[in-house]
């Protein structure tokens, strides 16, 4: 896993952005950008070369699932690994995210180990 990759953390709660940032920092990531909803995240994605998106589902303005669909339908962005980090853990949510092309799914509450495991699984190849 390349620790120099640029990670976009999208969540309307600063608490969760800070928790994820702390975990990523612990494992050596240094380039992290935050956005508080899908709309703000999309702007960042158009401007920066983002290598990984970690995104909440339930957010005002633009929910995570809409951001995922927007990313996957954009030729420039469609290959970016996109991980949903969300309290929405019902089957329909997971199926919808998989259909929309999510790379992995982390259910809140989660431990640092769980998040690291999921990232390792994505980048091991």
């Amino acid at each position: 896993m390349d620790l120099n990759m640029k990670v976009l953390i999208v969540d309307d709660f600063t608490t969760m952005r800070k928790l994820i940032r702390n975990i990523l920092k612990q494992i050596g990531f240094a380039n992290m950008i935050e956005a508080e909803n899908g709309k703000a995240a999309l702007k960042v994605l158009k401007k920066e070369n983002i290598d990984l998106v970690l995104c909440d589902w339930n957010m005002p303005e633009m929910p995570g699932i809409d951001l995922l669909k927007a990313v996957r339908s954009d030729d420039e962005l469609k290959d970016i690994p996109f991980v949903m980090v969300t309290a929405e853990a019902q089957k329909d949510n997971i199926v919808e995210a998989v259909k929309a092309g999510v790379t992995n799914y982390v259910v809140k509450p989660f431990t640092a180990e769980t998040l690291i495991e999921k990232l390792n699984a994505i980048f091991k190849g």
Partner: peptide, 11 residues
Amino acid sequence: VGELTNMISGQ
């Protein structure tokens, strides 16, 4: 507290 409530609701 908002995020904890959100997680409890989701779980």
